[in-house]
Nucleic acid binder design. Structure first.
Lengths: 177, 177
DNA sequence: GGAATTACGTCAGTACTGTTGACGTAATTT
DNA sequence: AAATTACGTCAACAGTACTGACGTAATTCC
């Protein structure tokens, strides 16, 4: 009974290889890297009784203050109901506030509070530290390669989402005059 | 009532920036990239009634045939109970077989069946295609940078897990004579 | 050889995040 | 005035993760 099921297929004893041109090396690296990348904030979130979903909402509301619920759903690619619970908790705990839209009063613009801003920063800090460490000996060229790669991994139709953030690396700040 | 909660904090209307040296650009790219990276296999898995957990188990059993349950738990960093259901389903559907360990008969060595091997390949294919497309115009140097970066993102203590896979890029196959 | 430990399976209970579908309301558009 | 849109909410459910506990067979320790 312990051995194997009666009519089971035979065990394959050779490791899967890069046959068929499958890039297992990067597939696996990506899995490990993302697992550890998310583990840092997870520990902080646990103190607040929050999960990864809260983190994502908090992140994007801080990155794009004033975005509407519909826009947030579109960025996160989850359903309204999934967002509802999480968003409600963030509002109840005063991390996020809703402001009625000016143009369209049906819309709720989402903004972080000072508390929400602080938490978003606290969550991003270890992740950024990890990235900085990983790029330690890398020059700007390597960094550019990595950014290009990650961007190219995103579905083309959705790449627009990435660029919504107000470019602020250069001197171009707010104000359009 | 629609406006804002009574004693809520004031909305912050400026976007979070790279102040404090936080690398939001890569944090966000990593999120989008991983989201889309996992979306391809998710669709295939749905046809089988499987989820992401099944994928991960299937992947590692194919990559390291003969690994034990304990080793698998260590790689996936999940608990026994989380693995149990998923593994049971994969065994019941004849994707994976257990073989009693030779050295230690308490251990169950896990092997893919032909069916399990085929599914693992089918799941990896779109991911590999996406990676290849993302690396399209990249040379070997860029690829190396990206691999180095991803590896450096993994917790140092756990980097050993990555190297367990039998190196097979070079001619060194099985057999030690 | 007997006791402790290990590897694994399993049961119970719970939490978080995600899904679909339906319904209501207020605001905007046609 | 009617249709549509943006949002909130309710119900029901699924997948994946957790903790803690218990049992069994095999191995190791003394």
């Amino acid at each position: 009974m312990t051995e194997r099921s009666p009519a089971a297929g035979k065990p394959i004893r050779t490791a899967i290889t890069d046959e068929d041109g499958i890039d297992f090396a990067i597939i696996e690296l990506f899995f490990f890297a993302y697992r550890d990348f998310t583990s840092d904030p997870d520990q902080i979130l646990a103190d607040y009784g929050f999960g990864r979903a809260h983190h994502r909402v908090l992140h994007f509301v801080n990155r794009r203050p004033g975005l509407t619920v519909a826009e947030l759903l579109d960025v996160l690619k989850i359903t309204k109901q999934s967002l509802a619970r999480v968003l409600k908790q963030l509002i109840d705990t005063d991390h996020i506030v809703q402001v009625q839209g000016l143009r369209d009063r049906r819309q709720r613009e989402l903004y972080p509070t000072a508390k929400g801003r602080a938490l978003a920063l606290a969550l991003a800090r270890p992740q950024s530290r990890r990235i900085r460490a990983a790029l330690e000996d890398s020059g700007t060229a390597e960094r550019a390669s990595i950014e290009r790669f990650l961007e190219a991994m995103v579905n083309p139709e959705l790449r627009a989402q990435i660029d919504i953030v107000p470019a602020q690396t250069s001197g171009k700040k707010n104000g359009d005059h």
